[in-house]
Amino acid sequence: MRRLGPGLILALVAGFAFLYLPILALVAYSFNASRLVTVWGGFSTHWYGALLSNQPLLDAAWLSIRLAFVSATLATALGTMAALALARHGRFRGRMLFSGMVLAPLVMPEVITGLSLLLLFVAVDVERGFWTVTIAHATFGLGFACIVVQARLAGFDSSLEEAARDLGATPLVTFATVTLPLIWPAVAAAWMLAFTLSLDDLVIASFTTGPGATTLPMRLYSAIRLGVSPEINAACTLMIGAVALAVIAASLLLKRRQAVGG
């Protein structure tokens, strides 16, 4: 391993500090006994207890989790299908267009995605709430899921699928017994990615939600406008923990497959 000079170490520390100090401060102050954000009053888990009695916040969290679950599942199913179409059917007519359209939400500014979805929902006159946010999140989660699964399919020996067909499996059975078992780590990773994206999205949810469907990031954001309380810090710390776990799990899944699948 190459040794790092003092200059490099300094740059590294400064970089990480810039990225993670705010988060560390947030986590630290969530354990602050004082109500004042800027004054350290000793260690306490008081605010985590208070969180449990904050019913609106708990409701928002529960809604966010359900919403992330459904939208991630939708996004993964559709994204996997899109990835299969892109990886398996070679150069079909309109492939570039299809691939571009699937992946466009990745680079589209969220404000535009949110606004256009809002316009759509208003135009077709659906009642905005849980399901409109779910559809919106599935739309942009799909692109991410597609990329993750497609990467896995790129290294997939298609003669395995042919062998299954040759041995009497219909295309559907081939997918269920050969393709899916071999790409499932990527599918699971795609699901977790879509789940976390949905969990911490504020912009698109704000555009597409309706009365009675306030997600956790929306609830936190509106609470902050009335002043930052340590309770919010506690809630955010929990969210950071959840997202970090999901991301780590996803990357472990993808790594493990590389090691085994080779």
Binding site: S159, L160, E162, A164, L167, G168, T170, L182, G261
Partner: peptide, 30 residues
């Protein structure tokens, strides 16, 4: 006729053994 209905089987150059199945399950697949 689609491949899964033909009474014809093939041994692939890459062997195309299913890596997630045991030897016995590979043979039992068809």
């Amino acid at each position: 006729m689609p491949p899964h209905l033909r009474p014809v089987n093939m041994m692939f150059q890459s062997y195309a053994l299913f890596p997630h199945l045991s030897v016995a399950d590979n043979i039992a697949y068809g």
